[in-house]
Design a binder for these strands. Structure first.
Lengths: 349, 349
DNA sequence: ATTTTTTCCGTGTTCGTTCACGAAAGTAAA
DNA sequence: TTTACTTTCGTGAACGAACACGGAAAAAAT
């Protein structure tokens, strides 16, 4: 039978009523210091753990987690994925009184993050899950949350200058390092390899820089003889070819190509139309990338499980706030290698 | 507030007591046919879903899942991994009254499966989770379970001749196919590639055969010029070299090597001692393999998340038996590619 | 000394469900 | 017709926890 310690057992041992034990547990009402310490000692000695089923059944409390995320767009569908995980987690926790309130900012509008952050603060949620996109604004928001004693957790990246209760993200530099290993595994010695950033503002995307660092670090550590060429473009595949032309490089010379984010489809489309087939590695299972992967035009997609990040972060908030468990601060998602051969079996949560 | 339909709402609508609704829901006691149909209609119309928290709190029922698994040994620690996932899942479901009763068979003793299967049947569990190892015995056991109306689920593989409510496993042939892609990606054209089975009885390990088939299929489909050499050994790496010598092949000619199970460390150790460095791909994160992977002696380990298989299977049993959800019958785990660079971030559950 | 206020605590109800007990009505047997 | 048995159903208590209400005792104010 279920042999858990109950509030009743503590009350019997302390010679008080269960109402008094409840007051100590929840810092509710008033209990004399002497009685409080006696009860707390017994709680600690017996390692009392509330029955979560009973607790949630009896409690009328609604727990609100607010989320602050980039709005997914037709050009960038990546950000719809953490939503899926968040919604799945909240659905699982619904019976426990957990609800979400979602706030979305426009990545192309520099005021948007601040506006939505303001709304989020007004909502006064129990906890916050956010993607720390605009660094300065995110730091400001986290300061406000600290003042209000509202715990928060990051997904996708973390910010060193702030005090989240945790984060869920992939190690960007290690994923870049692995990309380098894969390219090296597949190309001849002394090949020309492209490292490509596709981003409007590299400032807001420090994880792209980290990926680059990891990638370069591999070749330096291994003393490889490949030629690595870095290219930064803001939005089209054609820009890549223009860069190569300016440098007097024929695209046919490119043996391998690493794009530091989900925009790898732009590069792959571009080389596809040139009938050039370098080894191509990029990130994320967005529809355009999946299509090209299945056509064999992209060789590997590195996935960071955005869905799982959202899912796991909500569960961490729940564990911390409701179950009062100690949670891990650093939660790295696996660096998943997806190919045309294994994609159909890939579970993102 | 929580707006779920309660038993009380159904009782009010049907003009009966909550006790009668409960009796209909659980096919308990006796209710007249007329009253039963009226209540059932309302249950369906309102799509009533029990509050699982309240149900488990009130119910004294203990739900026993029995497991029938190979005993892990010092030479083969793989089978300790599903245990971890099973135990984690059961711990999560403990508050709902779920318990496990575990039965282990010795893979080297042909009677052991039958003996343990007999004990399992005597225990008369609510459901069974098993690894269908000894095919004939497993079929016999599943027939017995069918007679007793005890649902069962497989991990690691499935048996076509039986009627499990589901299985959780990796697609063996697709994982072999991916191994072929990886080897092909990394070796020169027309290389010598070894396909190695390390097993005492191939009969009991049809998934090794499936992996082989997938591996060979890749090269046939792509019309590759590599030379594929199949070797079967029963237990040591030295046997591999003996086979090569009998065929007049110098180990230095081996460019790539694929071992169809977790015994890849035997082959890697062997080639390591010969100071030969083919590309090496095998399965499973057992300690010996992890060590060699981190030393760079094994290039890829394909992982099928045994821990997750156990975890997921328990949750599927719970969803099916307790929540009365419809569960997916075929649950393929992802085909994970693990390297020295991403292993530290790999989460097996 | 008396009255008012504060502190402290016990008790009862709630949450949604499970399950045992026994009363009432209907049916069958003597 | 009376007695015994069966069917059907309502009611109350249990599960463990949350939380509101109010009574009793102690402390503070008059």
């Amino acid at each position: 039978m279920r042999k858990n310690i109950r509030i009743k057992d503590i009350a019997l041992k302390a010679g008080v009523s269960i109402g008094t034990v409840d007051r100590v547990l929840h810092k509710r009402g008033e209990v004399s210091e002497e009685t409080k310490q006696k009860i707390q000692q017994i709680i600690d000695d017996l390692d009392y753990r509330p029955n979560l089923l009973a607790s949630s059944l009896a409690s009328k409390k609604i727990i609100v987690f607010a989320t602050l995320m980039p709005k997914a767009s037709s050009q960038d569908t990546y950000w719809s994925k953490p939503q899926l995980g968040i919604e799945k987690a909240v659905n699982q926790l619904k019976a426990y009184g957990v609800r979400i309130q979602q706030f979305f900012f426009d990545m192309d509008d520099s005021m948007s993050f601040s506006v939505q952050a303001g709304k989020l603060l007004e909502a006064n949620p129990d906890a916050v899950l956010m993607a720390p996109w605009a660094k300065r604004e995110a730091i400001r928001l986290s300061g406000k949350l600290d003042e209000k004693n509202i715990p928060y957790i990051y997904i996708d990246a973390t910010l060193e200058e702030t005090s989240p209760i945790g984060f869920v993200a992939q190690s960007s530099s290690d994923s870049g390092y692995l990309a380098a290993k894969l390219i090296d595994w597949g190309v001849k010695e002394s090949s020309l390899i492209l490292l490509i950033h596709v981003a409007k503002e590299l400032d807001n995307a420090s994880h792209l820089i980290q990926r680059e660092r990891g990638f370069i670090r591999y070749f330096e550590e291994k003393k490889k003889t490949h030629r690595i060429l870095k290219i930064e473009v803001s939005g089209t595949g054609e820009e890549i070819v223009l860069h190569l032309k300016k440098l007097g490089i024929d695209p046919c010379e490119v043996a391998g190509l690493f794009v530091t984010n989900s925009k790898v489809h732009l590069a792959a489309d571009c080389f596809k139309s040139l009938c050039v087939t370098p080894k191509i590695i990029g990130y994320d299972l967005i529809p355009q990338n999946i299509k090209l992967l299945k056509e064999g035009k992209i060789d590997f997609l590195i996935c960071q499980k955005p869905e799982l990040q959202g899912f796991h972060a909500i569960h961490l908030l729940f564990d911390s706030l409701v179950k009062k468990d100690t949670i891990k601060k650093e939660n790295f998602t696996s660096i998943d290698l997806i190919t045309k051969e294994n994609i159909d079996f890939y579970n993102s949560i």
